[in-house]
Nucleic acid binder design. Structure first.
Lengths: 246, 246
DNA sequence: TAAATTTGTCTATTGTTATAGACAACTAAA
DNA sequence: TTTAGTTGTCTATAACAATAGACAAATTTA
């Protein structure tokens, strides 16, 4: 059944490799009868490992809330859908997520004024070395952290963006407060990385977890860049949806 | 310096957690002088581990081709940029990647006729149970596998798509051969997962590695869906670029 | 040249992970 | 009720990961 055996000496414990494999299969839904997983013994034979190793994997998935074991009966999937995060010309965090989660909010982690690096200056089309406002925020949906973002704004144009965000808890509202009623997403770049230590802390992830990293530029209706942001999503809680309006 | 300590008993070896952290820092370029990493002893102190553990991490990064150690001198970064994969209304694999890599090609892994599942039928807007052609392909750039994709086409409309792909090695050309001169990407959904065993085999990844999984629907110029595809990218080799034409 | 700094290699010990086997506890079906 | 199949828990052992210390080999700096 399996084309390739598990890799030993890879730095990833075998129980974790099995957990990753099962998590994937559950996510892509390989037709499990009654949402019931094969028995521990069956899985042990399939992966060619000891039953205890399979138990360690199932234990990990149970802690993540993905499966649930019942003595005498078996192990069952507790389906949990990812939150779909829309990315388009007009993407707002609360817009897209608000309909899927009960409660959404942004929490300000840090606010500072920095000197624009060449990277930031080029993204915002301002002169390198001028002041930018740096805004660190954590976004949550239903009490679970979803993403951690850092945004940069031209300090000259948006001197009060920090205070506005703090009172509103929303970038869209803060920008509106600063006179920007509408804005468009100009570009988005997406990468996937292993969670850093900061990620595991703020997003409540375990090491080895995945973060989707997006780099985006938002512009006003005249095409002038107003916001440059890097966002790190907990990959097992979201999917990014790109809709191309025709 | 570090907000959070490394996690033991997590199923991820500490050397691998350090390797992941360093890989991230190298990728986001935290200003290393002369592309030189701190010494093994410095890193050991920073992560509060033994020097041998740091060496194991550096060894892994060296095997990945990311760093290179030189006795008496230190450990140096061998920069390697990710291939940027554009996602837009008009995305073609060879278009976008062709300019960045020396050689690109698609290899047919498997070709079969299947009965459309509800999921596929709904994506292609055909009746469930009708025949679809399923095309598995592996894409490579400069000899390195980049992505593995499965595409479904309506068998009635594109009976010869498989043969056309086999001779041309390109979906765009195969579609042109079947009378579709132009097509548009209707939507794309992106998730990140840990590599499955098939991924580690076909994409030459190590366990614990990350794959970017996209689910896309392409339509002809009349808006009729013609292709439904799922693609798995080796995340450490690509970034996905979404450009919103204004 | 000498000293300091760096990576490379070896031995030994301790802690964690994986295997192995046995049996209890629980559930569903014969 | 009995049986088969399942998860839960215990003990013991082998394989691997991490620590510790020492010193060699190469390079750069004083």
């Amino acid at each position: 059944m399996n084309v390739k055996a598990l890799e030993r000496r890879s730095g990833i414990a075998i129980w974790r490799q099995i957990a990753d494999e099962l998590r994937n299969e559950i996510a892509t839904n390989l037709a499990l009868k009654d949402n019931r997983l094969p028995s521990e013994l069956t899985l042990a034979k399939r992966f060619d490992v000891n039953r205890h190793t399979v138990r360690a994997a199932l234990n990990a998935l149970a802690k993540e809330g993905i499966v649930e074991s019942r003595q005498g009966q078996g192990t069952f999937v507790r389906r949990q859908k990812r939150i779909s995060y829309p990315i388009g010309k007009r993407t707002r965090f609360s817009d897209g997520i608000g309909k899927q989660a009960q409660t959404t909010r942004g929490k300000l982690l840090n606010l500072s004024t920095e000197i624009a690096t060449p990277e930031i200056a080029s993204a915002l089309q301002i002169t390198a070395g001028s002041n930018v406002i740096c805004l660190d925020a954590l976004s949550e949906a239903d009490g679970m952290p979803v993403s951690r973002s850092t945004s940069w704004f031209c300090a000259q144009r948006f001197p009060d963006i920090g205070a506005a965000y703090q009172t509103t808890g929303s970038i869209t509202k803060a920008l509106a407060h600063c006179g920007v009623d509408d804005y468009l997403r100009q570009s988005t770049e997406i990468e996937a990385h292993h969670a850093t230590m900061k990620d595991t802390e703020y997003l409540q992830l375990s090491p080895g977890a995945i973060v989707l990293v997006t780099q985006a530029i938002n512009s006003d209706t005249d095409g002038n860049p107003i916001q440059y942001s890097k966002t790190r999503f907990a990959a097992d809680r979201v999917s990014l949806m790109i809709a191309n309006e025709l």
